[in-house]
Design a protein around this nucleic acid. Sequence first.
DNA 1: GCATATAACTTCAATTATTGAAGTAACCAG
DNA 2: CTGGTTACTTCAATAATTGAAGTTATATGC
Lengths: 162, 162
Amino acid sequence: MKPKSFIGMRCSIAGALELIGDRWALLIIRDLSLGLSRYDDLRASTGIPAATLAARLKHLCVSGIVERVRYQERPARDEYRLTPKGHDLWKVNVALREWGDRWDASGFGQPTTEMVDRQNGRPLILALVDAATGEAVPRERSRLRAGPGATDTTRRLLEADM
Amino acid sequence: MKPKSFIGMRCSIAGALELIGDRWALLIIRDLSLGLSRYDDLRASTGIPAATLAARLKHLCVSGIVERVRYQERPARDEYRLTPKGHDLWKVNVALREWGDRWDASGFGQPTTEMVDRQNGRPLILALVDAATGEAVPRERSRLRAGPGATDTTRRLLEADM
DNA sequence: GCATATAACTTCAATTATTGAAGTAACCAG
DNA sequence: CTGGTTACTTCAATAATTGAAGTTATATGC
């Protein structure tokens, strides 16, 4: 039967996962943000089957994460680029990479990439900061609070761990 | 045919996605980190079909993200908890939530939750910081650099955007 | 004693999705 | 006119997901 949709769940994580699509999608997005843009390059880099790649790219276009750009006429050829919405997913990939490196998810033992400061080469990681001031806040000092669109169920769950 | 495995790709993102499993897994992890732990609660909260939930939980246990804990004998009943490895995925979910809220992925218009500082109630977001000092660094000042385990292909790609 | 309830699943057949292999379309180069 | 490039599509086989219903072991109410 048809895979269930998350839509209607009133959850931004569920919505995000729905827009992204599946496990291949974040790899496609990873490659696009690394500078790849052509169908065949994406295929070679990810190893994704041709039919699946075509389907994923279509989905990502509909979701507004990727756009198709004609880069030559005769013969007509299109490439794929991240939209601003797609670029904005970078934190998801950084978080996945950090976690994957920390727990050796690739099984290879050594990280293949690392994020560093352009100016001094020092390693960078994701952390919670005050949205206004940019000051770092340790995770223990953070709390998830019900927002304007919270359901009663969500509200009850969040109150439990105040 | 059998869905392709990412293993062997030498990429921590691919590895992480493989360990996590699929789109349901992050919702399960979201609920576990919110305090749910019982099979039926997870089912009710996510709407995931029973058979699929059982399969996902098994996979997450094998991946070391979730553990099964007996909480009563007679009748024997187990609940599910995040391991430290599982808890450590929090940044992925925070990043997904931020993105989902920013682009209204749920289609609801209003965020259901928000991360705030316990001490002053101010909103928190994920940002890049110096791993050693905790000082925030703007994204434009960051660079992805080849790590010790990088393949030649990766190295070439990264050099292109120096 | 017996029906009902609870919790955590399992089983099943039907339906979709994914896959690898092969093929297509539109051109260009020699 | 043969071969190469790029971006796919088509196909049949296989695998995964689904909703509905059933299972197991026990407790609870009457």
